[in-house]
């Protein structure tokens, strides 16, 4: 059986700018796959190609074996797309939006209405079905968007930055919705620049400057280095970095004003470090590596720096 999504050597240029520089990966049926990367990394370009709204410069992308460029019309019937900007009509009710969406996919009548109700209930918005979308919170509106995307029973659900513009509470809430989708075995591809959202996925591809810099299970990627990450706040980070590197060796970098040291058994290393540089350490933390650390290790830059 064909992969749910198969992307091979995908390239896309905008004038001189290279948004995608040869991206390849495959998403299996039932998998939740995250495209993680800083803004400008190429996520949205890739998303738009998969959503049949942009042509690639080179390479291929297939949904269930169907080429998105060669047979866009068939692909459109098989994908559910949830865009970053809200696509619900705010002057219409949640149910009216669902029915309109259904009509775009050739659904109608009672089957459409009952399917819409089932989905609104599943995402906990059925009691607000007759409220205009302009009166729903950002989080509820996003739930309606996802319900809309699933209305025609797509083989693949594409979500572009589903938590963009949501507050912390609504983001947590959305992660629960995503976890539910994952349990149901819905094939999902989502783009995000939130680490915690990527961590919910079965696998992630980290995109930077149009390339895949890491691909795998989030926990496996994080555990790859086998080290802890020690982060030190100090007055002169550059001097401190050089001194630590000279004394202890290993990978020592300055990221966003903090000195970052990768080291196994970090808790044992911290006392040595503090005693070696008395009075210079203002604050120190030891942590297991996160996807952000994977990004830093692969690109040499922090996420925020890459986005800037």
């Amino acid at each position: 059986m064909a992969d749910a999504i198969e992307v091979r050597g995908l390239e896309r240029n905008f004038g001189d700018r290279r948004a995608l520089a040869g991206v390849s990966f495959a998403v299996r049926s039932g998998e939740m796959f995250g495209l993680l990367g800083p803004n400008g990394g190429g996520k949205t370009t890739l998303f738009r190609i998969l959503a049949t709204l942009l042509s690639p410069t080179a390479g291929t992308a297939r949904i269930e074996g169907i080429d998105v460029e060669g047979d866009a019309a068939r692909v459109r019937g098989r994908i559910g797309v949830v865009f970053q900007s809200t696509s619900t009509d705010k002057k219409m009710t949640a149910m009216e939006n669902m029915l309109l969406q259904g009509a775009m996919y050739g659904l109608s009548g009672e089957p459409l209405r009952s399917r819409a109700s089932v989905l609104l209930a599943r995402f906990g918005v059925l009691d607000r079905a007759n409220d205009r979308c302009e009166h729903l919170s950002g989080g509820l509106r996003r739930r309606v968007e996802i319900a809309k995307g699933l209305l025609h029973g797509p083989a693949v659900l594409l979500l572009d930055e589903p938590s963009a513009g949501l507050d912390v509470g609504a983001r947590r809430d959305l992660r629960e919705v995503l976890a539910g989708l994952r349990q149901d075995g819905t094939t999902v591809l989502l783009t995000t620049h939130f680490m915690e959202e990527a961590a919910v996925c079965d696998r992630v591809a980290i995109l930077d400057l149009g390339r895949v810099v890491a691909l795998g299970r989030p926990d496996a990627l994080c555990a790859e280095s086998g080290t802890d990450v020690i982060s030190v706040r100090t007055r002169e980070p550059e001097r401190f970095r050089a001194a630590v590197a000279a004394r202890f060796g290993g990978t020592v970098t300055v990221v966003e004003g903090a000195v970052r040291i990768e080291r196994s058994r970090g808790h044992e290393f911290v006392p040595q470090l503090v005693e070696s540089f008395p009075g210079q350490v203002d604050a120190v933390t030891v942590a297991r590596p996160t996807l952000e650390d994977v990004f830093i290790r692969r690109t040499g830059r922090a996420f925020a720096e890459a986005s800037a």
Binding site: A51, T52, L53, A73, R76, G77, I79, V81, F83, Q84, S85, T86, S87, T88, D89, K90, Q101, A103, M104, Y105, G106, K148
Partner: peptide
């Protein structure tokens, strides 16, 4: 177009 409604129609098989 600016709000995203049009995109969702363009991504549909209509």
């Amino acid at each position: 177009r600016n709000e995203g409604f049009l995109q969702s129609v363009l991504a549909s098989p209509a």
